[in-house]
Nucleic acid binder design. Sequence first.
DNA 1: TTGCATTTTTGACATCGGTCAACGTCGGGG
DNA 2: CCCCGACGTTGACCGATGTCAAAAATGCAA
Lengths: 231, 231
Amino acid sequence: MSSCDTCVVRNRAICSGLDDAELVSLNNMGRRRNVTAGEPLIWEDDDSLLVANVIEGVLKLTTSTEDGREQIVGVAYPSDFIGRPFGQTSSASVVALTDARVCVFSRNDFDRFAREHPELEHKLLERTLAELDRTRSWMMLLGRKNASEKIATFLLEMSERLADSTCTAATGPAKRFSLPFSRQQVADLLGLTIETVSRQFTKLKNDGVVELPSRREVEIVNRGALLALAG
Amino acid sequence: MSSCDTCVVRNRAICSGLDDAELVSLNNMGRRRNVTAGEPLIWEDDDSLLVANVIEGVLKLTTSTEDGREQIVGVAYPSDFIGRPFGQTSSASVVALTDARVCVFSRNDFDRFAREHPELEHKLLERTLAELDRTRSWMMLLGRKNASEKIATFLLEMSERLADSTCTAATGPAKRFSLPFSRQQVADLLGLTIETVSRQFTKLKNDGVVELPSRREVEIVNRGALLALAG
DNA sequence: TTGCATTTTTGACATCGGTCAACGTCGGGG
DNA sequence: CCCCGACGTTGACCGATGTCAAAAATGCAA
């Protein structure tokens, strides 16, 4: 029995749509790997040696300047594809934010397999186009929104993304959730400093828009206010 | 004779790699269209009705907030593909920056054709992955660079992109070029105001890093200094 | 439980870039 | 050739956000 049979993202990841024989041969190429929170999987500017599907957990994609400034340029959730196929180097580092489980492939093997399986390439194309859309809307946030708009947008996005990954049914955005980010990571995602993030969180709490039961927990009390703030 | 035979981007656009018969059928689906500077081709949030290859000219991809703030989220040069295949709505508006010539297809026709031609989908995938890389490195600029770093990075990128599209040989980055952007558009690209852009240009001129013979012309006098400033 | 390292919050202050307003310059059309 | 409107530059000022420092909270481990 291939491990794909028990894979929880089997029907959402790019492997969906492959027939049994294809799945067996893809399965033979890849292997499961556990990554602990904080552990890197791919390094920026390194040769692109591996690609992967996220099975469980959340990972960040980052780029850094020489002097150590960091920008989170993407976040990968279960069923997302990570790594840079068909390219020599990867343009971002990938680091686990939570303990995670991924299904990794050598890039060369994956490239070859993908080129022989148009349906897989199509899935990857759809995913990449959707990711590009998301990335572009994040550019608007980074370039044109102020701190409170950024935080509001971020919380709304979190409440949607985290609902999707925890519930199988479409139960709508989560009212309460646990952030997979530290304050510093929120800052790196929004192009702010940790102090500004902290002050904006405090302000939302004081204004009764959210509750913050613990460092990572968020409860949205007034979604309408958040929507208005997000602009 | 199909118009593809005389297409100047024939060997660089996603159509490269198609055989003669495929090219004829693609050609029958599409049509040439001229777009004058400032003219929109695709509207944000509209149904995605058409996609296109850029033959000549430069176009901007933008997203806007309700209150009129604009962020340029991409720039399309000759041989680039624009529009949102395999999706219901397009996440960005496309507007010509210069007079341009494009090869447009109905999205439905294109989607169908693409699904039947894996080689074309593969080209589109490679292009989309490369665009995602570029977009992510622009996120670092928007989120973490200051005004002078943004301007320096922008000028270096222009000198590379504009060299590519004007010279067939790889002559390296252009020392002198004509910006396809107004000052306001540069601001919209970098997440700045027009005043800050203007002041930074003036500073670079006063520091002897660039010459600005006219509004749109730029000559890079000291590339090393720009590289250092870009961070 | 206590102690300690880490993360987060808070405060005081500095500064970069935005805002508003005036002026200058360019270039196309009459 | 000149005028006019659009575009760009410059200056004065302001405020949002960054910086630096210290205190507080958290949570892990002994």
